[in-house]
Amino acid sequence: MDYPVEVALAQQVVALPEGEGWWYEPKLDGDRGVLWRRDTVRIQTRAGRDATEQWIDIATAAMDLPADTVLDGELVIWREGRTDFGAVRSRASARGRRLADLVRRYPASYAAFDCLMLNGQDLRGRPYLERRRALLEVLEKLGPPLQALPATDDVDVARTWYEVLPEQGCEGIVAKRATSPYKPGRSWVKIRHSQVVDADVVGYTGTPARPQHLAVRLPDGRIALTQMLTPLLTAQVASSLSEAALAGRAATAAGEEYRSAATDVVVEVAAGTTRHAVVTMIRVR
């Protein structure tokens, strides 16, 4: 396996998938980290950057892993019983004495959720459940700060996690097929904490006939782009957008550009309540 590895990601959905063969994991609020144990330890970010220096306490603990082992997981910092993403960001951007001070004051944890390689054997083509067993096996004799993320095939347990774990910094739930290999790209699905609200359509990306995303004004006044529209939703809003008067270009607070338009269209959306303000259109009102 070559460094860096391209990581698997999750596609946003509005409801937990159900049925035989689905497994569920809580999504903690931290930084993605691939942990490489070769002759030494390296920690790779989601984008492929080396972040070993920023997470030296995790790298030191990972020296106890078997040689030629690669794990995927989340780098988190716990403070007062919940994850602190601000502390994670501070650690990730710090250098020198400030970094050393943050490592001492706010030690990190590594919540592993996949095993990509064990004892030099590439496991990415193996089913999720086989990789999960390998993960539990390799971490069985170790303790904090390296731990396996909980997982369940009981959708009721997953719903309970979704309801009660936000107080501890859980962003939502990631669902994976028991038989699925580890593939780059959005091969998993996730549901984030959100509220279903009505929103005014104030623009779009793409063309009026084929809008890709809608720009919506949420009840709190924030303007955000929705996730990519499905073909059915595109058809539902296209006629209204074709009749709307364009008012030029605009951008959200996050810097996402869109075509501003005067419409009377109201849509129902699921708006994220976590730091990832994901907005997903459900239907036209």
Score class of each variant (00 low, 15 high):
M281G: 02
R91T: 14
V138G: 01
L129V: 15
R91V: 12
V5S: 05
V34S: 12
S180C: 07
R133W: 00
D50R: 09
R105T: 13
R32E: 02
W36I: 10
W188D: 03
A261F: 03
A100E: 13
R222D: 03
D122Q: 07
P184E: 10
E256N: 10
G86H: 09
D2T: 13
A251R: 12
R32V: 01
V201C: 10
R97F: 13
I56N: 00
A261K: 04
L214E: 02
A254P: 01
D57I: 14
T280D: 06
D57P: 07
L75E: 02
V197R: 07
D31K: 07
S109K: 05
F113R: 15
D39C: 00
R177N: 07
V157H: 00
Q147D: 14
F113P: 12
D39T: 04
L149A: 15
I56Y: 01
A108M: 11
R132S: 08
A111L: 14
E6P: 01
V284W: 01
L146N: 10
A15Q: 14
D2P: 06
E20M: 04
V138W: 03
T205W: 11
K27F: 02
A10Y: 12
R285N: 10
G21L: 02
P26Q: 12
V138D: 00
D220K: 09
K190A: 10
G86Q: 11
A100W: 07
A8C: 11
R283D: 11
P150T: 05
G143W: 01
L65Y: 06
P231H: 04
D156H: 11
Y106P: 01
G73A: 13
L233G: 04
R210E: 11
E257L: 13
A270F: 04
Y3A: 14
R97C: 01
D200T: 02
F85R: 00
P219T: 09
V237S: 08
V189E: 15
S93L: 15
L135S: 12
A151R: 07
Q11F: 00
T252A: 08
A277M: 06
A8M: 14
A224V: 06
L16D: 02
I282H: 15
V41M: 08
G81F: 09
D39H: 07
M1Y: 03
Q147C: 14
V5A: 06
G272N: 05
S180D: 12
L123G: 02
D122C: 08
V284S: 00
L229D: 06
P184Y: 12
V34T: 15
W22S: 08
G272V: 03
E74I: 03
V265Y: 03
L116D: 09
A108Y: 02
P144Q: 13
P211R: 11
E20I: 04
D50W: 08
V202A: 05
Y162A: 03
P127M: 11
G21V: 05
D68N: 07
D220N: 15
I223Y: 07
L102R: 06
Y110L: 05
A100I: 01
W23T: 14
T160G: 08
P145G: 07
E257Y: 10
P150L: 07
V197K: 04
G81W: 04
L232D: 15
W36D: 11
V267D: 10
I43M: 04
L35C: 13
V155P: 01
D29F: 02
E20G: 10
W55R: 04
Q121S: 08
A253W: 04
R131E: 09
P17L: 12
V7N: 01
L16S: 06
K27E: 15
T160K: 13
